[in-house]
Write a protein that binds this DNA or RNA. Structure first.
Length: 993
RNA sequence: GCGGGUGUGGUGAAAUUGGUAGACACGCUAGACUUAGGAUCUAGUGCCGCGAGGCGUGGGGGUUCGACUCCCUCCACCCGCACCA
């Protein structure tokens, strides 16, 4: 074999590992560049071909940056705490640490085969105590801080205590959820426990009773981003709302900075929009409406205070705390009933049922703060208790839901817009001029909003307010396989474990299940099983998966530091991640939390930047191509004289079952199935027909006089069964392997094509174990080599696009590498080089390629890069070029994509082993591309008809003359005079007729 | 409903600033050489048409000498958000 990739690749991988070729220097005169991949969760299934897509791209870019003279940080690690390992532990009793280690070993083996230039000395695992010690430490910092809105940053809690001691809390501008005010004296008079409770409502991580998403099937709470459409993101289990005492992260404090920070980072609009959406900023005013005859007032939040004169009623959420107090006797029964019905509906139902307008009058009235008029107070489930204040001022002329509600219940609709017709629908645009609104009359909405807020504040019944949809993030999980909290309890008051005693390691437990009384698994641990034993008990919850991943990119800079989470000098040198590659599915989870923690650590002065990931590229998902075999179902039509309907149905079903068992193991080739679908009567299969006949006779014996009995096969309802793609080649099933696949298929029969083959159907789906369509990179590495795999994955198409995996074209890429190899070698596979000066043509090809490859890398267009290499090698092959100077440059160019073959060729060219990774990226020299003439496409009315070659220095006029004189042009002119001739020098000629 | 994205041969795709649409690769067809590794080489391959030629980048319209590219409008698919006050 000429190009022996197996031997080459193995040797070079060993060389890189032994020589630590890709070790990154912590301090260097070179400029730094940090390329990061989203680290994987090591699942039991191993890597499939989709995982390396992003890793290959980032590796190519890392290698390119090294060639450009950068000191590149390109690490890899494992997000190794998580649910699947724990579920597996519950089933098998094995410690999750054991399976996690095994899975990591498998991942590492797979990654090693692909030739990544990771600095493996920097590997981190979120589940290792050396790592999570610092996750616990960061938690402690959050606990020890509050958010000072005046300084707009996190500040130590001691400073807050100092303020309380001197002036109480009245003038403290903090992000908090403490209700009420206290003086310095009152503060000092509080017991330690009371003070602790107060402080808790200011801390950036806090313990509180909060409504959480409880997932009974997983036995844990979930964060909002882990709940999708009312079910758990992992596993799709139902989720219910439950009030629980939980640790939360006060991410709300950072809402505004998380929003504005997006403007300064280079991410896709899609991800930024998702985060903006999730944060959900809305500006407006909070306004208090007095309740007629009550002390209480209703606080509403509105984005349109300019429409306040259009308020003709109020709507409270059915759960609003004031509802019971204000409801009049007359309406109390109706209100109770409405509340009951609303409580029966799930949050999801309430949200999906948009068309039904429901509501209930409470009989109470609110006083309009400006007009003093009484407006009805209703309850309605279109108002959500969890958003804003759980109450709205209804402006039917300006809000479609309010309009619908008013129409439905016959409530007055006041028009406060100039020249706007609101008889058919509300007018929600902000371009109308306000009318009918006293001091707001004649103002356009934008101005009116400001004026209204000003007036509301002046009169003292409300103020301008900005509201965010972002909720604080629940940080406790009732699970075993996660970071323990550095928290112990004394008299149920939480205390922090001192830094010196960190990490709190995971204690051994007898089972990975909750206790009988519903406590999390850690409650099973004996006190002595903990490595810290202060207080009455330790915290039994563990941290969520996103804890460790929120700061791992920092740890890579200083992975072995035992004294700090990262040394300041190192983070000063490496700074933030220059290029982050990963999937877009983490938009509102990991990517938001990591930004939050980064801003927090920045506030405390530990790191010099506020945004973790400067530029991000989201690689598309690689989809699988599933193969299917088809099993048909019988259709029995039986009618029996003198027997009841029920009996008939029962017998029919029996028959169906019997027949099903006959057909169970019969599989029909896809093309034949399609034929029968359109023409069921063409079906003929002696064996099956015989079986059906036999069955019919049996029935005839059993049933005296069937009025009608027909048995047919329903081809349209054929059952498609996933067949493992490893036993399918080019859609043709290996029937012998299939029979051995599962016991139930041992006696399978196949209705095949004429040539005896069984043809499978196929579909593009997500790659997953259960669909038997998982392609691992291992086989492909074995068959074609890592360099081919790397180039092929890039060749598939643009990185960001999702695409089905198909190995059809892999030969083309493999052939390219063989052609490349042949440029350097003679027929006997001996290196054969021309040591002289390169030809003009070869230089032109080379420099054209240098330009394109460089440009492609700069815009992350890896697929066109591969194409350009192919073009280059094709041209050099045509030129029979084996010039050393040319090939040496080409080898460097190719090395980021195909590092193994590049290393081998580099040495065969006479260079030192291992030096290619730090060679100099070839310099583009335009001179080699300079042409003296250009082949002009000559088009008529924009259509290219033929080409003519002219010198580049020929004048426009001269070109025009030559073109028109050309006989080919005369043919297209058809004797007419051209209206106009456009000559773009060096580009094109267009003749307008 | 709102926001983001995609739409080009039989297939994956390319066209970077408005300038030869389909590069490169797969597949397919024919031929050559071998007949063992999934081989290699040559020629062809957008569609219609014998041909001249016509048509062609989701549909329709526009700007322009010239549009895959810019503008308007509609359609389909994918992703995210959604009684958010």
């Amino acid at each position: 074999m000429e190009y022996d990739f197996r031997k080459i690749e193995k040797e070079w991988r060993e060389f890189w590992a032994e020589n630590k070729t890709f070790k990154a220097d912590d301090f260097s005169d070179k400029p730094k560049y940090y390329v990061l991949d989203m680290f994987p969760y090591p699942s039991g299934a191993g890597l499939h071909v989709g995982h390396p897509l992003g890793y290959i791209a980032s590796d190519i870019f890392s290698r390119y940056k090294r060639l450009q003279g950068y000191n590149v940080l390109h690490p890899m690690g494992y997000d190794s705490f998580g649910l699947p390992a724990e579920q597996y532990a519950i089933q098998t009793g094995q410690h999750p640490e054991k399976t996690t280690k095994e899975n990591i070993a498998r991942y590492r083996g797979q990654m090693d085969k692909i030739g990544f230039s990771f600095d493996w000395d920097r590997e981190v695992r979120t589940s290792s105590p050396e790592y999570y010690k610092w996750t616990q430490w960061i938690f402690k910092q959050l606990f020890d801080c509050w958010y000072d809105k005046d300084a707009d940053k996190a500040v130590r809690i001691l400073e807050l205590v100092a303020k309380f001691e001197t002036e109480g809390n009245a003038n403290v501008n903090a992000e908090h959820d403490f209700e009420g005010t206290f003086s310095a004296e009152e503060w000092k008079a509080m017991s330690e426990k009371e003070q602790s409770t107060v402080l808790m409502s200011y801390r950036l991580t806090y313990l509180a009773d909060s409504w959480v998403n409880w997932c009974p099937a997983l036995g844990t709470v979930l964060a909002n981003d882990e709940v999708v459409n009312g079910v758990s993101e992992r596993g799709g289990h139902p989720v219910e709302q439950k009030l629980m005492r939980q640790w939360s992260m006060r991410i709300k404090a950072y809402a505004e900075r998380l929003l504005t920070g997006l403007d300064a980072i280079d991410w896709t609009d899609s991800i930024k929009d998702q985060q903006r959406n999730w944060i959900g900023k809305s500006q407006g005013a909070s306004v208090h409406f007095k309740v007629d005859g009550h002390e209480d007032s209703i606080e509403v939040f509105t984005t349109r205070p300019d429409t306040i004169y259009g308020v003709s009623f109020m709507v409270l959420a059915p759960e609003h705390p004031l509802v019971d107090q204000i409801t009049t006797d007359e309406f109390s029964a109706g209100v109770e009933e409405y509340k009951r019905q609303a409580s029966l509906k799930s949050e999801r139902d309430r949200q999906s049922d948009v068309k039904n307008i429901t509501g209930q009058n409470t009989g109470a009235f609110a006083i309009h703060p400006f007009t003093g008029e009484k407006v009805q107070i209703w309850i309605g489930d279109y108002v959500l208790a969890s958003y804003g204040t759980g109450a709205v001022m209804a402006v039917p002329c300006g809000d479609q839901r309010d309009w619908d509600f008013a129409k439905h219940f016959g409530i007055e609709i006041i028009n406060i817009f100039e020249n706007v017709d609101i008889s058919e629908a509300a007018y929600a645009e902000k371009d109308a001029v306000i009318a009918n609104s006293e001091f707001l009359n004649g103002l356009p909405a934008k101005k009116a909003i400001k004026t209204a807020i000003h007036e509301i504040e002046k009169q003292g019944f409300g103020k301008g307010k900005t509201q965010y949809r972002l909720r604080d993030a629940v940080f406790s999980r009732q699970r075993y396989w996660g970071e323990p909290f550095p928290v112990f309890y004394k008299n149920e008051v939480p205390h922090l474990v001192p830094d010196a005693d960190l990490p709190i390691t995971l204690p051994e437990v007898d089972k990975y299940l909750p206790t009988e009384d519903g406590e999390p698994p850690l409650a099973r641990a004996e006190k002595s099983a903990w490595n810290y034993q202060e207080g009455d008990r330790m915290e039994y919850n563990t941290m969520p998966g996103w804890a460790g991943s929120s700061w791992y990119f920092l740890r890579y800079m200083d992975p072995k530091n035992e004294n700090e989470f990262v040394a300041r000098e190192k983070v000063d040198y490496w700074n933030n991640v220059d290029l982050y590659i990963g999937g877009s599915e983490h938009a509102t989870g990991h990517l938001l939390y990591a930004r939050f923690w980064t801003k927090f650590l920045f506030d405390l002065g530990y790191i010099p930047f506020e945004e973790p990931f400067q530029k991000m590229i989201n690689q598309g998902m690689i989809l699988g191509r599933s193969s299917f075999v088809y099993r048909v179902k019988p259709l029995v039509n039986l009618e029996i004289e003198d027997e009841g309907v029920i009996n008939t149905i029962k017998k029919s079903m029996d028959l169906n079952l019997k027949l099903d068992s006959i057909l169970r193991s019969v599989f029909i080739s896809k093309p034949i199935l399609d034929k029968y679908k359109s023409d069921p009567y063409s079906f003929s299969n002696p064996r099956i027909s015989a079986q059906i006949e036999k069955l019919k006779n049996e029935i005839a014996k059993e049933i005296e006089n069937p009025k009608e009995l027909s048995i047919s096969i329903d081809f349209n309802d054929a059952q498609a069964i996933h067949a493992d793609i490893s036993m399918v080649d080019n859609d043709i099933l290996d029937v012998e392997v299939f029979k051995k696949w599962r016991p139930e298929f041992a006696n399978a029969e196949f209705i095949t094509e004429e040539d005896g083959t069984y043809v499978c159907g196929h579909e593009v789906e997500k790659m997953s174990k259960s669909k038997y369509n998982v392609q691992t990179p291992d086989d492909l590495c074995e068959d074609f080599g890592a360099d081919t795999l790397r180039m092929y994955e890039m060749f598939l198409g643009p990185l960001e696009q999702s695409k089905p995996w198909d190995t059809k074209g892999i030969n083309g890429v493999h052939n390219f590498l063989r052609k490349l190899w042949r440029l350097f070698h003679d027929q006997n596979n001996k290196v054969s080089l021309d040591m002289g000066d390169p030809s003009k043509d070869a230089l032109k090809t080379l420099h054209k390629t240098i330009k394109k490859i460089g440009d492609d890398l700069e815009r992350f267009s890896f697929n066109t890069g591969v194409s350009n290499f192919m073009i280059c090698v094709n041209e050099l092959t045509d030129q029979k070029c084996n010039n050393k100077q040319i090939l040496e440059q080409l080898t460097i160019l190719v090395s980021p994509y195909a590092p193994h073959i590049a290393e081998e060729l580099w040495v065969r060219l006479g260079n030192e082993p291992g030096t290619i990774s730090y060679a100099k990226f070839p310099e583009f020299n335009e001179e080699h591309l300079v042409e003296s003439s250009h082949e002009y496409p000559i088009s008529f009315n924009g259509k290219m008809r033929f080409k003519l070659e002219f010198p580049l220095d020929m004048s426009k006029e001269q070109i025009e003359k030559e073109v028109l004189a050309n006989e080919n042009a005369q043919k297209w002119l058809e004797g007419k005079d051209p209206k106009k001739v456009i000559v773009v020098p060096g580009k094109i000629v267009n003749v307008v007729i």
